[in-house]
Computed example of a mutant assay.
Amino acid sequence: MLKYTGERIIPELMKPTNGMLLEHLARYHFAIHYLNGRVLDFACGSGFGSQAMAKAAKKRINQIVGIDIDAASIQYANAHYYHPSVSFQQADAVDPSLPEKLGQFDVIVSFETLEHIEDEGQYMSNIFHMLKPGGTLIISTPFGLGRGKPTSEPFHVHQLTEEEFKQLFHNYSQVDFYYQKGVLVEPGRQGLHYPIGIAVCTK
Score class of each variant (00 low, 15 high):
residue 44 C to E: 02
residue 68 D to Y: 05
residue 28 Y to E: 09
residue 4 Y to G: 00
residue 41 D to G: 09
residue 81 Y to H: 13
residue 99 P to F: 10
residue 3 K to S: 15
residue 84 P to L: 07
residue 42 F to Y: 12
residue 39 V to H: 04
residue 2 L to T: 10
residue 98 L to Q: 00
residue 83 H to C: 11
residue 101 K to F: 05
residue 7 E to F: 15
residue 33 H to F: 15
residue 29 H to A: 04
residue 21 L to P: 07
residue 65 V to L: 00
residue 33 H to E: 14
residue 74 I to H: 05
residue 5 T to Y: 06
residue 12 E to Q: 11
residue 51 Q to M: 12
residue 105 F to G: 02
residue 19 G to L: 15
residue 27 R to T: 00
residue 100 E to Q: 13
residue 54 A to S: 05
residue 53 M to K: 01
residue 108 I to M: 06
residue 38 R to F: 07
residue 33 H to L: 02
residue 77 A to I: 02
residue 68 D to K: 10
residue 21 L to S: 12
residue 15 K to I: 09
residue 4 Y to K: 11
residue 28 Y to V: 05
residue 82 Y to N: 06
residue 23 E to T: 10
residue 73 S to Q: 13
residue 77 A to H: 02
residue 22 L to S: 11
residue 77 A to P: 02
residue 2 L to M: 09
residue 33 H to M: 00
residue 75 Q to T: 15
residue 104 Q to A: 10
residue 12 E to A: 13
residue 53 M to F: 01
residue 68 D to I: 10
residue 20 M to S: 15
residue 19 G to N: 14
residue 41 D to P: 07
residue 46 S to A: 00
residue 55 K to S: 11
residue 59 K to D: 08
residue 34 Y to H: 10
residue 82 Y to A: 09
residue 34 Y to G: 01
residue 85 S to T: 13
residue 83 H to S: 09
residue 66 G to M: 11
residue 105 F to Y: 11
residue 20 M to W: 15
residue 75 Q to E: 15
residue 42 F to R: 03
residue 70 D to R: 00
residue 3 K to P: 13
residue 56 A to H: 06
residue 69 I to K: 14
residue 72 A to T: 06
residue 79 A to S: 15
residue 45 G to D: 03
residue 105 F to Q: 02
residue 54 A to K: 01
residue 71 A to V: 14
residue 54 A to M: 08
residue 58 K to Q: 14
residue 15 K to G: 08
residue 73 S to L: 11
residue 50 S to L: 03
residue 90 Q to W: 01
residue 45 G to H: 02
residue 90 Q to N: 03
residue 14 M to E: 11
residue 2 L to S: 07
residue 2 L to D: 07
residue 22 L to I: 06
residue 49 G to C: 07
residue 104 Q to Y: 12
residue 80 H to F: 15
residue 58 K to M: 13
residue 42 F to I: 02
residue 109 V to N: 02
residue 100 E to L: 05
residue 66 G to K: 11
residue 41 D to M: 08
residue 77 A to C: 06
residue 31 A to E: 08
residue 101 K to N: 05
residue 70 D to E: 04
residue 20 M to F: 14
residue 63 Q to M: 09
residue 68 D to R: 09
residue 33 H to D: 12
residue 65 V to P: 00
residue 49 G to Q: 05
residue 54 A to H: 03
residue 4 Y to P: 06
residue 57 A to Q: 02
residue 80 H to S: 12
residue 6 G to C: 06
residue 21 L to F: 06
residue 73 S to K: 11
residue 12 E to D: 15
residue 86 V to H: 02
residue 40 L to F: 10
residue 67 I to Y: 01
residue 109 V to Y: 04
residue 24 H to C: 14
residue 39 V to S: 04
residue 106 D to R: 02
residue 36 N to R: 13
residue 51 Q to L: 12
residue 104 Q to P: 09
residue 103 G to E: 15
residue 45 G to K: 03
residue 61 I to F: 03
residue 83 H to M: 12
residue 97 S to P: 07
residue 28 Y to S: 06
residue 14 M to I: 11
residue 90 Q to V: 10
residue 100 E to Y: 04
residue 29 H to E: 14
residue 34 Y to C: 00
residue 38 R to C: 06
residue 12 E to S: 14
residue 49 G to F: 01
residue 64 I to R: 01
residue 48 F to Y: 09
residue 32 I to A: 13
residue 65 V to W: 00
residue 5 T to P: 04
residue 41 D to C: 08
residue 91 A to E: 08
residue 45 G to I: 02
residue 94 V to G: 00
